[in-house]
């Protein structure tokens, strides 16, 4: 089990909190809520060790487009980068809805 923390600049506030996903095999849950400051904060708890670089790549790419000042907690149970991105996009879509 590994814990990864990353921060990103934000361009706009997020209006609400959303929860998507499940901590099941190959899946993850995302808790996204308004950040207390004008930045985005990500905390990843993952069951698979040694993939910090991959997590950073996925989150870098997500935040290039997302730009919301959100605190995001990810509880991961061995999801692939593609699944991680889908869950993040699902959360972003739910925030906009």
């Amino acid at each position: 089990m590994e814990r990864i923390e990353l921060d990103y600049p934000a361009r706009h506030a997020v209006p609400r909190r959303v929860h998507v996903g499940v901590v099941g095999s190959g899946d993850l849950e995302v808790l996204l809520e308004p950040s207390p400051d004008q930045r985005a904060h990500v905390l990843v708890n993952t069951s698979v060790d040694g993939f910090g670089v991959v997590w950073k790549s996925v989150l870098d790419r997500f935040f290039e487009r997302f730009g919301g000042a959100a605190s995001i907690e990810i509880n991961d149970f061995g999801a692939t980068p593609g699944t991680v991105m889908l869950r993040l996009e699902q959360a972003a879509e739910a925030v906009r809805a």
Partner: peptide, 21 residues
């Protein structure tokens, strides 16, 4: 007591297992 209340298992992380919120 939804996910944002974060009432998680205190025991699973001690055993290296990721807990759900």
């Amino acid at each position: 007591l939804g996910p944002f209340d974060r009432l998680k298992s205190p025991w699973l992380p001690l055993q290296g297992i990721v807990a759900q919120s």
